[in-house]
C-alpha cells in the first residue's frame, strides 16, 4: 500500500498543459495554460476551435494558411452523411434508444477501420512519409503494399489506402475538397496529388477517396500518422452525433431494418421440439 505522506506523489508529465491551483482548493485550477497560453484568460474569445485543436496537437499556433487548410478539412469531414458506415452506427444507437455516448462509441469503432476510416488514414499518411511526391515510389507501393510480418489486431489492408475499392470515378465532393485545399496555399503534396490523381487511380484501379485527401492534407500540414488517425476520428463525429439524435427522435419504425434483405443459405428449417 502507498503511504502518501512519505513518498513523492506520482505525477502526470505533460508538455501540453499547466495549471495553477485555486487558493482554497488544490483540486481545482484557477489558471490553465495550453502550450504557454492562458486558456480562459487569453485564448477564450480570440482563438477559433480549429486553431485550438491545432494548438493542442502542435503546441504552436498555425499560420493563416495552415489554419485555413485545417479548417477546410474539418468542415469537409464533419459529416460523412447518413450512408457512411460510422454514421449508420451512431444512428443505430439512436433508433434503439441507446445512450448518446454509445452512439459516438459506435461511430468511432466503425469509423476506425481500414475502409474509409481512421486506420486507412494512418496507413495512407505512412505511405506519404515513405513516398512523398515521387510517382515511381507510389506506383511501387501500390503494386507491392507492405505486409505485417507479425500478427496484429488490425486486419490487413485489402485495398490501397486513400482509394475507394467500391468506387467508380472520383466523386465530385472529393475533387472539390482537394481543389479547395490546393487553392489555399498551393501546398506541394496537395498540388502533387491533384496533378497525379488520375495516374494513381489508374494504378490502384480505384478512385481517390476522402480518406486519401485527408491523409494528404494531414501529411502536408506536418501531422504524424498517429495524430492524423485520431484527428480523423474526432473530426468526423459531429455528423454522427447530429444524425444519431435525429434518428432517435424519428424512431426505429422509420429506419431501415432490411427485413427482406437477409437470406440464410443453410437454414435447417423448423426443428421439432421434443418437449
Amino acid at each position: 500500500m502507498t503511504d502518501n505522506t512519505e513518498k513523492t506523489l506520482e505525477q502526470i508529465t505533460t508538455k501540453i498543459w499547466r495549471e495553477e491551483a485555486e487558493v482554497d482548493n488544490p483540486f481545482a485550477a484557477a489558471k490553465s495554460y495550453c502550450a504557454g497560453f492562458d486558456v480562459y484568460g487569453d485564448l477564450l474569445g480570440k482563438i477559433s476551435l480549429v486553431e485550438y485543436l491545432w494548438l493542442l496537437f502542435k503546441l504552436d499556433p498555425p499560420n493563416k494558411a495552415e489554419a485555413r487548410t485545417f479548417e477546410g478539412l474539418a468542415v469537409a469531414l464533419a459529416n460523412p452523411g447518413p450512408r457512411d458506415h460510422s454514421v449508420r452506427g451512431a444512428m443505430n444507437a439512436g433508433v434503439g434508444g441507446s445512450t448518446r455516448a454509445s452512439a459516438l462509441i459506435a461511430a468511432i469503432s466503425i469509423g476506425a477501420g481500414n475502409l474509409g476510416g481512421a486506420r486507412e488514414v494512418f496507413t495512407a499518411v505512412q505511405y506519404w512519409q515513405q513516398c512523398g511526391t515521387d510517382i515511381e515510389s507510389w506506383i511501387d507501393i501500390i503494386d507491392n503494399p507492405p505486409r505485417e510480418e507479425r500478427a496484429d489486431v488490425w486486419p490487413e489492408m485489402e485495398h490501397t489506402p486513400g482509394f475507394d475499392p467500391n468506387g467508380a470515378s472520383c466523386p465530385m465532393p472529393v475533387k472539390q475538397l482537394l481543389d479547395h485545399l490546393v487553392e489555399i496555399e498551393q501546398n506541394e503534396p496537395l498540388l502533387w496529388l491533384q496533378s497525379h490523381r488520375q495516374t494513381l487511380e489508374q494504378h490502384t484501379g480505384s478512385p481517390l477517396a476522402f480518406s486519401g485527401v485527408a491523409a494528404a492534407a494531414f501529411f502536408a500540414l506536418g501531422f504524424e500518422p498517429e495524430q492524423a488517425e485520431i484527428l480523423f476520428l474526432l473530426l468526423r463525429l459531429p455528423g454522427a452525433a447530429a444524425h444519431a439524435i435525429e434518428q432517435e427522435k424519428m424512431g426505429w419504425s422509420r429506419y431501415p431494418f432490411f427485413g427482406n434483405g437477409l437470406t440464410l443459405t443453410n437454414d435447417p428449417g423448423p426443428v421439432a421440439n421434443n418437449d
Binding site: 506520482e10 505525477q11 508529465t13 505533460t14 498543459w17 499547466r18 495553477e20
Partner: peptide, 9 residues
Amino acid sequence: VDRIKSMPC
C-alpha cells in the same frame, strides 16, 4: 493540480 508535472514552456 500539483499532480501535473508540466514540462517547461
